[in-house]
């Protein structure tokens, strides 16, 4: 195992095949592995044991933060710093503040969802060891790949390769970092 190995990549043909392969890799006791698919595979989260994504929470906090800060801004600007009488309306009232704050809550939550997604996925990441693999480019088309990372405690070039072969992986290759 060279210092620069990133992992071993194996290729599968159908969503059901990759799902079965993932189950077997999991059952073999590997912990640092991932599958690469052209679209999300129904049931894969369960197999990989992925917990509920925190993106929703990021969105909630960003949205809530935006809501409160706009309420604060409205209070500060329209009721505290420069109160102006407009249309006989109170300087600060719940119905009036609701609309802009609510709109900004949506913006905040949307930006939060995007930023959360990018941050948890460590994107943008223009350079990636997998991009060196020719077969990997087919993942976005119709192939389904499984990668066992070299950082996995159970990782061994020969054993892992054997396992991947036994579960039907094709075009098995070692990815260099």
């Amino acid at each position: 195992m060279s210092e620069k190995t990133y992992g071993i990549l194996a290729e599968f043909d159908s969503p059901a095949a990759i799902l079965r392969a993932a189950e077997k890799v999991r059952d073999a006791g590997y912990s640092r592995w991932d599958v690469f698919t052209p679209f999300p595979i129904h049931g894969m989260d369960k197999v990989m044991g992925l917990k509920n994504s925190l993106v929703g929470w990021v969105a909630l906090f960003m949205g809530g933060g935006a809501f409160l800060s706009v309420v604060g801004l409205i209070w500060f600007s329209n009721a505290f710093d420069y109160p102006l009488i407009v249309g006989g309306k109170p300087m600060f009232s719940v119905p009036m503040t609701f609309v802009p704050s609510y709109i900004m809550m949506i913006l905040g939550a949307a930006v939060g969802a995007l930023i959360g997604m990018l941050a948890f996925n460590e994107l943008p990441r223009f350079h990636h060891p997998l991009f060196t693999s020719e077969r990997f480019a087919l993942v976005s088309r119709d192939k389904f790949c499984l990668l066992v990372g070299s950082t996995d405690p159970k990782f061994s070039e020969t054993e892992t390769r054997k396992l991947l072969e036994s579960i039907g992986g094709a075009h098995i290759e070692i990815i260099e970092d």
């Binding site: 350079h127 990636h128 991009f131």
Partner: peptide, 12 residues
């Protein structure tokens, strides 16, 4: 691969 490794710093 079209991007060298240092480009991964750009997002920050």
């Amino acid at each position: 691969m079209i991007f060298p490794k240092w480009t991964n710093q750009i997002p920050f």
